[in-house]
Simulated assay, not measured.
Amino acid sequence: MSPELQLDSHGRLRHLLTLEGLDAGLLTEILDTAEEFDKTLRGPEKKLPLLRGRTIINLFFEPSTRTRTTFELAAKRLSADVLNLQMAASSTSKGETLFDTLKTLEAMQADMFVVRHEASGAAHFFAQHAAPGVSILNAGDGRHAHPTQGLLDLFTIRRYKSGAGRPGPDCFRKLRVAIVGDVLHSRVARSDIHGLRALGTTDIRVVAPPTLIPAGIEQMGVRVCHRIDEGLDGVDVVILLRLQKERMLGAYLPSMSEFHRDFGLTRKRIEALRRDAIIMHPGPINRGVEIEGDMAYGPQSLILQQVQHGIAVRMAVMAMILGPPQRRAADGRRGLRRARSAA
Rank of each mutant, 00 (worst) to 15 (best):
A88M: 13
N138W: 06
L175P: 01
E29A: 13
P147M: 11
V207P: 02
V307D: 06
G323I: 04
T148A: 12
H146Q: 13
C225M: 15
L105R: 13
T69M: 06
P282R: 14
M280N: 04
D170N: 04
M318I: 11
D111M: 07
S162D: 11
Q128V: 07
R166C: 04
G121Q: 12
T18D: 15
D111Y: 06
S301W: 13
L137R: 01
R52F: 09
G323Q: 03
S9P: 00
E218L: 06
H281K: 06
S162F: 09
A107I: 06
R173L: 08
A131R: 15
Q128F: 01
L83R: 05
G288P: 14
E96G: 01
G250A: 11
S301Y: 15
R159E: 15
G121S: 12
I285K: 00
K245P: 00
R166H: 11
P167A: 02
G298S: 01
M248E: 03
D32P: 02
A296T: 12
G234Y: 08
V134S: 00
E118P: 15
F113H: 05
I285F: 09
G332S: 01
H281Q: 03
G165H: 10
P325T: 06
L151G: 00
S90F: 00
A88P: 02
K174F: 03
V222S: 00
I179P: 02
P169E: 15
Q6H: 00
A89T: 10
D38V: 02
R247S: 09
D236H: 14
E72L: 00
P167I: 07
M295P: 00
C171K: 05
L249A: 04
